[in-house]
Design a protein around this nucleic acid. Structure first.
Length: 258
DNA sequence: ATGGTGGTCGTACCA
């Protein structure tokens, strides 16, 4: 049994104590982090090693940044930090192999506003991702694609679909890209396990959004189709969102029989 | 009231 988790921490420097507590409590085999906002030279490797986790990071100053924490060693020669044929200084991708499992950790661009330059960048980035995942799908039999997708796939993933209709994170062009990813041969692990409404992974810091559960489900763990019937559970852990000085995202967790 | 919160960096910027 393998537990894979993903958490947008919105600054690992601020959130490291919460991450260490969460690792100690939950002991996932893999934890993918997004928005670490740390250059690799400043990554807290020693603290995480002491907690029993191997570390691979792909970071930059101030913005973006992804990392993989793993109880088992990650094969160093199998680490990738770029989308092929997509020149991009923003650190948003980290792929690694852990035993029989290929893990791809993503921090998908936010997109700012539908129609903006950043929205165009998001769609282009998703096209480059689709090409990459197609290639990875052919190369690796057991694949999980995790991270902050910045896309709520369906209306039931949105607290107020009418208010959000057409907005960034929810708009049809983004959802279409998400469906194209799934069509490569992936399943949304959460929806394999849970059909409920009102299950979200992100809540705005403003307007007491978490207390009122005004959220979106934008953090996902996708599994390759062959693993679908081996997903034993997929959950969103809202406990860290209730702490003092939380990330605006909750960790998402999937358990896979491997 | 046409906002609001939070992280980074020391100011606008990003989300």
């Amino acid at each position: 049994m393998l537990t894979v988790a993903s958490w947008n921490v919105n600054s690992l420097r601020v959130r490291l104590p919460q991450v260490l507590d969460w690792l100690a409590t939950n002991r996932p085999d893999l934890l993918a982090l997004q928005e670490t906002k740390l250059q690799d030279a400043h990554f807290p490797v020693a603290e995480l090693n002491a907690a029993g986790y191997n570390v691979v990071a792909n970071g930059q100053k101030t913005y973006n940044g992804v990392a993989l924490l793993s109880r088992q060693p990650l094969q160093a020669e199998e680490v990738a930090r770029e989308l092929p044929d997509f020149d991009d200084p923003q650190r948003r991708v980290l792929a690694a192999t852990c035993g029989d499992l290929r893990v791809i950790n993503l921090y998908v661009p936010n997109g700012a506003e539908v129609g903006s330059d950043k929205f165009r960048y998001k769609l282009d980035w998703l096209d480059a991702l689709t090409a990459y995942l197609q290639q990875q799908r052919e190369r690796y039999p057991n694949l999980v694609v995790v991270g902050d997708f910045n896309i709520a796939p369906e209306d039931r993933d949105v607290h107020d679909p009418q208010a959000w209709q057409g907005s960034v994170l929810v708009s049809e062009p983004e959802r279409e890209k998400f469906r194209q990813l799934l069509a490569l041969g992936f399943k949304d692990s959460f929806r394999l396990c849970d059909q409920s409404e009102g299950a979200y992974s992100w809540w705005d810091y403003r307007a007491a959004a978490f207390r009122r559960n005004l959220g979106l489900r934008i953090d996902h763990i996708l599994v390759s189709d062959n693993l679908a019937d081996r997903v034993m559970g997929s959950t969103i852990d809202t406990a860290p969102r209730k702490l003092e000085r939380p990330s605006d995202h909750a960790p998402v967790v999937a358990t896979v029989q491997l």
